[in-house]
C-alpha cells in the first residue's frame, strides 16, 4: 500500500506522461528496427539480403557497369534479416520510424544506389569488388598479397596460382 502511494505521489509530481511526439521530440531506442540504412561503399552485391528478405523489399539488379540495389519501404516488414545476414554490415536497420507517406510516393524506392564493379588488375574483366570488411572476415590480417589476389578475376587468380606453384 505504501508503495502504491509512493508511485502515485511520484507520478503526481512528475507531471503528464503523454509523449509530446507530433509537437515535440520523442524517445526512440537505439536498436529500434526502423527504415533500412545502406552504405554502397561497403556493399559487395552478394545478394544475401535479397535472398533472406521475407517480403521482397530488397532487389538487386545486374546492369552493364555493375549492380543496382533498391529498397521499397512500402513492403518492408522491418524484421532485420538483411542486417543480421549482411557479411559486411552494409545494410542495417536505422532507428528512423518516419514511415507515413502520401499515396503519390507509394512506389518510390526509398534507397536506389549503384554498386560499381571494378576492373580485374590483370585483364579487362569486370568483377565485384572485395571490401576490407569482407577480407577481414576471411583472413586474420589483410596483407598486400591478400589485397592483390582480391583484385583479380577468378580466371586470372587461377592462372596466377598455377604460375606460382608450377612455373
Amino acid at each position: 500500500m505504501a508503495q502504491f502511494f509512493t508511485i502515485a505521489l511520484r507520478n503526481f509530481l512528475k507531471g503528464p506522461t503523454t509523449d509530446p511526439y507530433p509537437f515535440g521530440e520523442t524517445y526512440t531506442p537505439e536498436n529500434y528496427r526502423g527504415i533500412i540504412a545502406y552504405s554502397p561503399e561497403l556493399c559487395i552485391g552478394c545478394g544475401t539480403c535479397e535472398y533472406v528478405c521475407p517480403s521482397g523489399a530488397i532487389k538487386l539488379r545486374h546492369h552493364e557497369s555493375g549492380m543496382n540495389f533498391s529498397y521499397w519501404l512500402s513492403t518492408c516488414c522491418h524484421c532485420g534479416n538483411c542486417g543480421y545476414y549482411c557479411p559486411t554490415d552494409a545494410v542495417f536497420n536505422s532507428n528512423d520510424f518516419h514511415t507515413a507517406r502520401a499515396q503519390s510516393e507509394k512506389y518510390d524506392a526509398t534507397i536506389n544506389d549503384d554498386i560499381a564493379s571494378v576492373q580485374c588488375s590483370r585483364c579487362d574483366a569486370m568483377i565485384p569488388r572485395a571490401v576490407d570488411a569482407l577480407l577481414a572476415r576471411a583472413y586474420d590480417e589483410i596483407t598486400d598479397t591478400v589485397r592483390h589476389r582480391a583484385s583479380l578475376c577468378p580466371d586470372c587468380r587461377r592462372l596466377e596460382q598455377f604460375e606460382r606453384m608450377y612455373l
Binding site: D19, Y21, P22, T26, Y32, S55, L73, S74, T75, C76, C77, H78, C79, F97, H98, T99, A100, R101, A102, Q103, E105, K106
Partner: peptide
C-alpha cells in the same frame, strides 16, 4: 488511398504521423 503508413507493425508515433 490518401496516406500510407508502412511498418510491421507500425509504431504508435508513426500512426500519429
Amino acid at each position: 488511398v490518401d496516406v500510407n503508413v508502412s511498418g510491421c507493425p507500425i509504431r504508435p508515433q508513426s500512426i500519429l504521423d
